[in-house]
Simulated scan of single mutants.
Amino acid sequence: MSQYKIPESVLVVIYTPALDVLLIERADKPGFWQSVTGSKDTPDEALLTTAIREVAEETGIDATQFALRDWQISNVYEIYPVWRHRYAPGVTQNTEHVFGLCVSPDVTVRLAPREHVQYQWLPWQTAADRCFSASNAEAILLLPEFNQN
């Protein structure tokens, strides 16, 4: 595996049928709340595989047991300078692919303590307001349109 992150990632909005959204707080940036995100491990890793792996790694949730959907939305954004050292020299943009995962309201969440320190379930509008990432907030605001429980 390369020493650098691949600048292609997934964003997985995890939500309940009542449209409560799971947000997790980053361990390396207290106060930065987000949905599950993560880069492909290899250039040829399928995006669905990346989404399933990242959800399991970050929340302990088995996405294969719930309705995981590719929303067919891609965002290209500038990588925050604080995280650019993780990418190859000269890489400044990432392509993020958005997924939605509808889970039961009683699903157990087990955070990866090195990545996230706490989680909360919030109504979708409140969750969108809490996200530090504009693309994450925009994805959450689309939730009513993509919700298919």
Score class of each variant (00 low, 15 high):
Trp121Asn: 08
Ile79Ser: 03
Thr92Met: 05
Arg53Ala: 07
Asp28Ala: 10
Arg53Lys: 11
His85Leu: 07
Arg84Ile: 00
Thr37Glu: 02
Arg114Glu: 13
Ile14Pro: 08
Ser9Met: 11
Val55Trp: 13
Arg26Pro: 01
Ser2Ile: 07
Leu47Val: 03
Thr37Phe: 05
Asp62Arg: 14
Ser74Glu: 14
Cys102Gln: 14
Asn136Val: 12
Val117Gly: 10
Arg130Ile: 05
Ser35His: 03
Arg53Tyr: 03
Val98Cys: 11
Ala27Arg: 13
Val12Met: 07
Phe32Met: 07
Val55Ile: 15
Thr16His: 00
Phe146Ser: 09
Trp71Ala: 13
Val12Lys: 07
Ala51Gln: 07
Leu141Pro: 00
Leu68Asp: 10
Tyr119Phe: 15
Asp41Ile: 04
Tyr77Ile: 10
Ser39Arg: 03
Thr108Met: 12
Trp33Val: 01
Ala18Met: 05
Ala67Ser: 15
Glu25Val: 08
Leu47Arg: 02
Tyr15His: 15
Gln72Pro: 05
Glu25Asn: 10
Tyr15Pro: 01
Cys102Gly: 12
Val117Glu: 09
Ala18Ile: 00
Val82Met: 07
Ala88Leu: 06
Thr64Pro: 08
Lys40Ile: 04
Thr95Arg: 15
Glu58Asn: 12
Leu11Gly: 05
Arg130Glu: 12
Gly31Cys: 06
Gly60Met: 08
Ser135Leu: 08
Cys131Asn: 00
Gly38Lys: 00
Glu54Ser: 02
Val36Leu: 08
Val76Leu: 10
Val117Phe: 02
Glu138Phe: 02
Ala18Lys: 07
Ala127Ser: 06
Tyr15Asp: 14
